[in-house]
Each structure stands twice: as structure tokens, then as C-alpha cells.
Amino acid sequence: MKKGIIAIVAVLFVSAFLLITAHSQEDMKVVDRSVFKNPQKFSSVFKHEEHNEKAKIEECNECHHVYEDGKLVDGESSEDRRCSDCHKLESSGREPSLVKAYHTNCKGCHQKNKKGPVMCGECHVR
């Protein structure tokens, strides 16, 4: 019984540790492209913390938005989900594909604020 509890606790600790390290934003240097079977472009350089400090972004949902029926839901945020949970590889209806969602989200904001990379290879650095 005792051994069982220790084993469960150990597993919980290990998985919690893995979860934390896997999702650590400080460590994020590029955008994960593992959903693409045959990626054509280099992973986008994206240093999460550095970006948000530079861009003075406080709220998660400035990027991690939630849309329902094509409308932005105020105050809701989606950083607990993967972008690819909603955005599929192909666009469907008004929902942009994963690639298009990233491009619109990142490049759109950069163009609006005239700051940050806008040309393909400025993010997809070799």
C-alpha cells in the first residue's frame, strides 16, 4: 500500500515536472512546427518572454484569443490550449488555417504597429 502511494506520488511529480518543462515559456525560442508532416519553412524564431517584454504585452489573450461563431470573446483566453486545437491545417469557412492564423496574428500586429518582423525570412530564419 505504502509502496503504491509512493509510486503514484513519484509518477505525479515526474509528470508535473515534465509538464512544466515542456510548457515553460522562458525556454521557448521557436514556434513548434511538429504538426506539419513535411514542413517547408524553418521554424519561426519566437522568444516568448523577450517578445512580450519588448512589445509590452500584459494580457495573454492579446495573442491567445478565443473566437466563438466568428466573434472574438472578450476577456477569454486560450493559452491552456494548443493553437492547432482550433486551427487546422486547412482553412474552413471563416476559420483560418494554422499557418494563416499565425501569419495574421503575428504579421498583422507587426504591420499595424510598424514594429517587428513582416517579411517571410525575418521569422523563418535559416
Binding site: Q40, K41, S91, H103
Partner: peptide
């Protein structure tokens, strides 16, 4: 094609880079 898709919502088959 990516840029045309973003600008005009049109897209088609593409060549491998």
C-alpha cells in the same frame, strides 16, 4: 500562395520549396 491567401483569400496547390 501564402501571401495571396492572406491578402485575397485565394489559394491552390503549391510546389515543394
Amino acid at each position: 500562395v501564402t501571401l495571396w491567401d492572406e491578402a485575397w483569400n485565394i489559394s491552390w496547390w503549391t510546389l515543394p520549396d
